[in-house]
Amino acid sequence: MTLEFGFSVTHRRYVPYAHAHYGGDLVDGAYGLALFGDVATDLAIHTDGDESLLAGYSQVEFLAPIQAGDVVEVTATLTRVGSRSRDLAFEARVLCRAAPDRGPSAADVLDPPILATKAVATIVVPAKTEGDATPA
């Protein structure tokens, strides 16, 4: 396990059309936040050997839409370590996007990727118990 500032975990996911919630095949903003929750859990397992609990977001910015047919990459980066709390910075980037004007299965790799969502959150891990080998 590592509890180093700057440690990060990244996930990638295809956004299925079944998740489209609005016109233009848009997904709701909560979709990206759910992905942040997943990558935060992964990071906490690596740093503390526990899934952690999300205490709250201190900042969320929706910068560009996430759409069905996108391939999204989400990253959580450790920015602060307290005795039980950890602050994380998140980014969601759209790497690929469907191109239905060229055909029903056409898609493009976006270069550069689109920064869709940024956030800052705090997670909490259980208190260290006597004899516990996990980081404080």
Rank of each mutant, 00 (worst) to 15 (best):
L54H: 08
Q59Y: 12
D108H: 13
T47D: 04
T10S: 09
D38I: 15
A106I: 06
Y14R: 15
G69C: 03
V94Y: 04
D132I: 08
Y22K: 12
D25K: 14
G32D: 00
L78I: 06
Q59L: 14
T2L: 12
G131N: 05
H19E: 13
A127P: 11
A98F: 01
R86Y: 02
T122D: 05
G131S: 07
V71Q: 12
L110A: 09
F62T: 07
V39I: 07
V81P: 07
G32N: 08
I45R: 05
S85Q: 06
G32H: 05
T79R: 06
I123T: 08
I123S: 04
F5D: 13
P65M: 03
V125F: 09
P126L: 04
G37Q: 10
G131P: 03
R97N: 04
H19W: 10
F36D: 07
A107D: 05
C96Q: 13
G69I: 05
A98V: 05
V120F: 02
E4P: 06
T10W: 01
L3S: 03
V120W: 02
G24N: 10
Y17V: 11
C96A: 13
D42F: 13
A133I: 13
G56R: 02
A40H: 07
A76P: 11
G49V: 07
V74S: 01
A92W: 01
S58N: 14
R102K: 11
G103F: 03
H19I: 08
R97D: 00
L3F: 04
L115D: 06
S8A: 10
F5G: 14
L115T: 10
R13W: 14
V27E: 00
S52D: 08
A116W: 01
G49F: 02
V71M: 10
H46V: 12
R102D: 13
P104T: 08
R86I: 02
A119N: 03
P104L: 09
D50P: 11
G103D: 05
K128T: 05
T77N: 04
Y31S: 06
A68Y: 02
T129A: 15
A40D: 03
D50V: 09
H19M: 13
G32P: 04
E130M: 07
M1D: 09
R102S: 11
A89I: 09
L115H: 09
T75R: 15
R86S: 03
